[in-house]
Design a protein around this nucleic acid. Structure first.
Lengths: 247, 247
DNA sequence: TGACATATATGCAAATTAGATATATGTAGT
DNA sequence: ACTACATATATCTAATTTGCATATATGTCA
């Protein structure tokens, strides 16, 4: 970034409220699948607004930091995680979403494998793994319910319930035309595991042969020839996600 | 918004760069269909970065202004338009997207009927109606080409070509599962007009009976019993968009 | 060795979609 | 008034996709 000019020289031409700028933050929906249910990692607020409530981990965007970089940094700092599927979700900019001051929040969706989810919990024991339920309302889904490990309903801080709702609906919407599901699975997985992930996100059960056919026809799955181990019955073949050559 | 506390009391606890905040702007993709092709309204930059280039109309977000409100204001001020379908698109936050200073831009997609598009042009003659082409690349689409009325290729200012590209791809993606197409049509329209809009956005031609069936089965169309006039052949029935009762 | 649980494969009916074709209905010209 | 014409609208059939049931395969474990 070029800071050669004196900012004030031109800011006034463009931005009458240049010295009353909103702050910009990123908030992360750290999503994984646990026990075949969607789960998010939350942090407990210990300060003024909504103190004691659970919230999405977030942080302010540095003046010389790209949005994606800020999201990656929060992922690193708050979840101790080097990498994860990270995609921008939506930007929340209601004036009073934070009672302290004007904060515009760019929400990101981070998809974690079960391993990564648990690793984050170990690295940051203060994180709460909360189950997420998305009721079926009018063909898509309604506002989410967030449940603590003890199955208590949680009220999230700020507008974080809205953010989480949007994350879940977005995930549902993208599920069958994109490759997001694979971000929730380990390198090698069985078709059953893939179906479990889909069912967890959709909150519905799917027809097995049809699901299998669709997935295989997609051309994204590469059979490894290896099989799962430890099963008390016939083991399933392990597949690997391989983005199609055309894309 | 509550400004009761002195901001500096708590900002420092949360934001180490509190006094070096990015500016937040909104940029609008004002999109309509002209001559069965997608078109956007652009403004000419007369100042420093990218002076002379065409850009998306935009404006800074006021400290006490919601993001959606800022977008609506820009729509009003820059396009002289009271209302239009307005939806948030994506937030662009690369550090060097503006060489002057750090500006995070929340892009909005505004869908205009042909009438509204022309009205904006009359109200603000400085606006340029530019045609947009989205080449088919790998199943979805590639970077857009923007053409002036004289068919010259235009290079947009800043990262506005990226914004426009995302707008077009988003529109394509939503076209057949959402009701966006109706935002581009007048109150009353024929099935042919609806199909024309779809074809313009997809950049492909569709099968007529199949399209007709799908649209009618959706339950969003209400036949009026009235027919178009002025056609030199059999006039088509006029339909009205009626959101389904379930949603 | 056989019960068992699940993976995998196959088959078929139902539903959806694509495409072609036929029919209807307005305008415009003679 | 009649006919050509262009397009709307309706109908029909084949192809494709999907849902679901059933059959077969293959591992563990008692």
């Amino acid at each position: 970034m070029v800071h050669a000019m004196n900012e004030t020289d031109f800011i006034k031409d463009y931005d009458p409220s240049a010295f009353q700028r909103p702050s910009v933050a990123v908030d992360l929906v750290l999503l994984g699948i646990r026990d075949n249910r969607p789960a998010v990692l939350l942090v407990k607020r210990d300060q003024h607004p909504h103190a004691g409530r659970w919230a999405l981990p977030g942080g302010f965007v540095g003046i010389d930091e790209a949005l994606d970089a800020a999201a990656a940094r929060v992922l690193r700092e708050k979840a101790g995680m080097a990498e994860a599927h990270l995609e921008q979700l939506y930007t929340f900019g209601a004036v009073d979403r934070d009672p302290r001051m004007r904060i515009i929040s760019v929400a990101y969706l981070a998809l974690l494998t079960e391993r990564a989810f648990d690793a984050a919990l170990s690295a940051k024991p203060a994180l709460l793994p909360a189950a997420v339920e998305v009721p079926w309302v009018g063909e898509t889904g309604g506002a989410v319910n967030v449940l603590s490990p003890e199955n208590e309903a949680l009220t999230l801080a700020f507008d974080h319930a809205d953010i989480l709702t949007m994350a879940m609906l977005r995930l549902r919407g993208k599920l069958d035309y994109s490759d997001v599901a694979f971000a929730l699975l380990p390198e090698l997985f069985t078709l059953r595991q893939l179906q479990d992930v889909h069912e967890a996100i959709l909150g519905a059960s799917l027809n097995k042969p049809a699901f299998r056919r669709r997935q295989l026809d997609r051309g994204w799955l590469k059979a490894t020839g290896a099989y799962e181990s430890g099963a008390a019955f016939r083991p399933a073949e392990l597949y690997r996600f391989q983005p199609s050559t055309a894309d």
